[in-house]
Amino acid sequence: MKLRILTSLAAVAVLAACQSEPTVEYEIQSVDAHRFAAIFEATEGTPTADDLRAGYLDGAGRGVEIFTPHRIRDAQHLASVIAARPELYRRGIDVCLPLADDSNDELNRIYAGLKEIFPEETLPDIHVVFGAGNSGGTADADAQVLGLEVICAIEDNEADIRARYRHMFAHETVHAFQVHSPAATEIDPLIAYSIREGFPDYIAWRVTGVAPDAERDSWAQENADMLWRRFSEDRATLNAAIANGTPYAQASDEMQITMRNWYANYRAAPEGWPYEMGYWMGRQIVTAYMDNAEDEAEAIATLLTFEDPLEILEQSGLAELASQSPE
């Protein structure tokens, strides 16, 4: 299955908005990242939990607040991660933080493109922070947050880091707009997760003109037949468990392992695979769904608030591909 080339007038208009001078005035919020950097420098890269609590977590802004419960967790956990991987934070401070501070024009170009697609939505503030080495970014309704030490660990050079920022400015913002539907996950968890992540990747592709993660995209296109077979098999495994009375909200170990073939598997993907292949699968479904939509605005609204992943899959025309019987 080949990645579709942007040809619609709407897509061309979005790319034009991104390439023109930015008109939306937003600024990346990095105060807390600089507070972290100051503590790291003052302690020669060995901050204690007390140092981090007093100088970083206490009195922090919205970005750290969003990142704390499931990522940073607490000062003791953060201190232990820094002690184990100080080089991540050294590079994040030296490389990724200055680049973030220098990315406001790129942010505003991306946001101009997003306003073309989501004219009624309020664009969230963007915060960059240092977390516990486990998340490159997340979003809440009012803000998106990027984890600098993870982005610096993933990307090798300035060009790739800037490209990652542009992608995440778009991808995480769509998450800020989405309505989370637990009911949709219980209908078909793999399809639901794929649409939930594939839609932000689709929008990021539209506003940047670049496929998210070029290496993953190239590998996936070359291995698409195998991927759809595995996707169908894992989807059937998950749905059978739900049919047998195990809600996905109470996923068994087997269900979690199956889902990790596609999601949350950085450095733990199936052998030979790029990580997070579920994002690519979801983008194929969403792209096909959008290509078949008669009313683009209505289709986008459905993808933001979707309650029935099977309807979206059916309308994409890929239901048969995602429902193959084992050979």
Score class of each variant (00 low, 15 high):
66 I>K: 00
93 I>Q: 09
311 E>N: 12
41 E>G: 13
320 E>I: 14
225 D>T: 07
300 I>T: 11
186 E>L: 11
166 R>K: 14
212 P>R: 03
210 V>K: 12
166 R>A: 15
98 P>M: 06
240 A>K: 15
189 P>H: 08
84 A>Q: 13
326 P>D: 15
77 H>M: 09
8 S>G: 06
175 H>D: 09
136 G>V: 04
326 P>W: 09
18 C>R: 14
147 G>L: 09
48 T>Q: 05
237 T>S: 08
255 M>T: 12
87 E>L: 12
128 V>D: 06
250 Q>P: 01
9 L>Y: 03
162 R>E: 03
312 I>V: 15
234 D>C: 07
273 W>H: 08
156 D>A: 12
308 D>P: 05
5 I>C: 07
120 E>M: 04
156 D>S: 10
114 L>M: 11
228 W>G: 07
25 E>D: 11
19 Q>S: 15
196 R>I: 00
6 L>F: 12
35 R>N: 14
125 D>L: 05
249 A>V: 07
19 Q>M: 15
68 T>N: 08
250 Q>W: 00
69 P>G: 10
136 G>F: 04
76 Q>E: 15
229 R>I: 09
316 S>W: 04
111 Y>G: 06
225 D>N: 07
223 N>K: 05
34 H>V: 10
193 Y>L: 15
265 N>S: 00
256 Q>T: 10
204 A>L: 01
14 V>E: 12
37 A>K: 11
194 S>I: 05
292 N>V: 08
258 T>E: 04
75 A>S: 15
89 Y>G: 08
207 V>I: 05
289 Y>A: 11
292 N>E: 15
235 R>W: 01
128 V>H: 00
275 Y>I: 01
10 A>K: 12
93 I>T: 00
106 E>N: 01
176 A>L: 13
141 A>C: 03
65 E>Y: 07
261 N>Q: 08
